[in-house]
Design a protein around this nucleic acid. Structure first.
Lengths: 207, 207, 207, 207
DNA sequence: CATGAATGAGGCTTCATTCAT
DNA sequence: GATGAATGAAGCCTCATTCAT
């Protein structure tokens, strides 16, 4: 807060939109933390406001409703995934290698119970909120398409769709595992995961 | 239950204890449906009561609270899983074959968005309710232990724990996939799953 | 319960009204205990039923409602008081002496927190339930009239009404004290009470 | 409170803390009225809210629960009593005279059926709520101690404890009488009360 | 913009009372 | 008569949202 105050001192008209964006971002981050702790339904607006160090009323200057916060958070979720995917697409060498390389990084977050908890919340919400379901379906579809396209160079098996589903299932499933078995030996699992992914994508089409 | 059945044959009088069990079961089923539709927090007691065609007050003759209903449902979930596991353990032939055979059956429910939604609810709840977390951790641990023991005959790789985690991740991850991509080609996925599981467990320990 | 069973054995037609009265009495006693423990509003019908070892539904064969139980209990309350008063009226010697003699006995119950609690409940209820208020006002008035008549022989001071009020206030006030200060030294208080009552009634009209 | 008064003078802006206190006080008064009308258990939060002209939800900005409102009211009750006692303690002349003088004032409230009803509620609640019982026992004890100390100058009879109990019993008992017999001749009773109190405290220790 | 007091609908739960057996 | 399951109307309390300041 002192930082912003300094910036305000520097120029009489501080970029309002910047501060607004920053404030909105802070709110989203606070909301994410709360949702992870308490779930979409369990988290209270007052709790989010406190976590973001603002008054409850102020939230409604940035968001129309709790629902909208959830929607924006989910959007952000997907943007992060897409950014990761973009980095893989841009690689010069073997896509699969870049993919495996980024797997470790990705796993750091996928296996992170916090991150996984968010995925769970989002997926669970999709089973009851049709808007979320559509958003998920769409984004998920786009991700799969791009993944398929990126991997086509490596492997054009006719059942690539199923393989990709299997892959995503593995990643997200491990997220659940991380929650249900906090003592899971991550190193052995990551090693095994590499092996599985190679088996999935390196292999020639079924003979 | 057999006693009551006899009594039923003897006279028209409906055995009280039987009806009580039946009513409780009906309530649990209604609750499960509601929880799948709306989540643990989203589902309302009134909604559950209506789904079971009883008055709201009656629920409290059978359960102390909403929380207890959730707990009993989770317990029931694990009992089903354990029953499946018991059938596999009792097989005479190859455990892995029995396992693969039951996979299809299991997948029917794991891929069933209803069933998966319940798993999501339960897992998500574990991230915020410590009691549920403990119950899950315990039951999950028992299941993994028994699975490991059952598979030892086939494969005693030193990283069996990781492999089992991977396997369960696959199954539960596919549950999520079924929700996020309802158009998933199930046949191809099931076929691939068989292949993956064979790869996981049939293989000799890493050389 | 075994006793009643025996009686039933003795005569095929057990005096139904007797059993009914006995049952009703048991219910009233159970209700009194519950009301003392939890207050008129705090006591639950189920609690009363359990205390009387009957089913909740049966209560409604004997009473129309909870309110009626309260009313009958209050009536019984007054009957006991009137019986005590009657014994004093019938004495041959000094009414005041009989009175003072019965004071100790009366105090045993008035100072008994149980009994006093009932008086409190009844009086408190009178502040909100007009029916009870009327009943109380009436019964109380009758008691005061009879007390005044009985004491007239001893003392016909013109302010006898006030003195009687003062006397009853003392008795009932001590009931409150017994609740608020359980460590009260009863002997000293009883001794002092005798002195006060003598002062109240033995004295000639104010000079 | 003086600070806020100054601020009020300075500008029209109503000091937030002042309004908060005022609102809380209004709620307490409204609650008191409702409790007197309907009893602690009979009074409804909605009724209290309406009596204070606020929405039901607002009550919970100022109090944690209905129980807490009751507790604060009881506390306030004792504070009033203590203030009265403090005035008597500070008198220069005869404590007993100051005492008798304040008796009339005190009686105005003790004989006020409203006030007495509150005492009844509080005492009745003490028979079932242990927290209240402890609070009452404590506060009552303190009051008796201070009363005894204040009267020691006048009268150091060895049974002063019993006399004080008797005195309080008289006052509180008259409160009950005021409820049970609204037609009580207050003047005669007050006159008699003076006489009784003098008899209680002016007298030398028993010979 | 910012605050946080205020609102009020609605959730979970209780409990007096009824009724099928 | 006797039971206790069943009812359903409230009750206490929560919390997303609004609004005066």
């Amino acid at each position: 807060m002192t930082d912003e105050a300094n910036q305000e001192d520097a120029s009489e008209a501080p970029p309002a939109s910047f501060r607004a964006d920053e404030r909105k971002d802070r709110l989203l981050c606070a909301a994410e933390r709360c949702f992870i702790d308490s779930g979409f339904h369990g988290a209270r607006m007052a709790q989010i406001a406190k976590a973001a160090s603002v008054s409850p009323g102020l939230i409604y200057h940035y968001f129309d409703s709790k629902e909208q916060i959830i929607a924006e958070l989910i959007q952000r979720h997907f943007n992060e995934k897409k950014a990761m995917l973009a980095r893989i697409e841009e690689t010069d060498g073997s896509v699969l290698d870049a993919f495996l390389a980024s797997l470790e990084e990705g796993l750091q977050s996928s296996l992170d119970p916090f991150w996984s908890a968010m995925t769970l919340e989002v997926t669970a919400e999709a089973t009851r909120n049709d808007d979320i379901a559509k958003l998920l379906c769409c984004s998920d579809g786009e991700m799969r398409d791009r993944l398929r396209a990126a991997l086509k160079r490596e492997n054009d098996a006719p059942d690539m769709d199923a393989r990709i589903e299997m892959f995503v299932a593995l990643i997200q499933g491990l997220g659940i595992r991380a929650i249900r078995n906090p003592d899971m030996e991550r190193e052995a699992v990551v090693k095994l995961l590499r092996d599985m992914v190679e088996h999935l994508f390196r292999r020639r089409p079924q003979d």
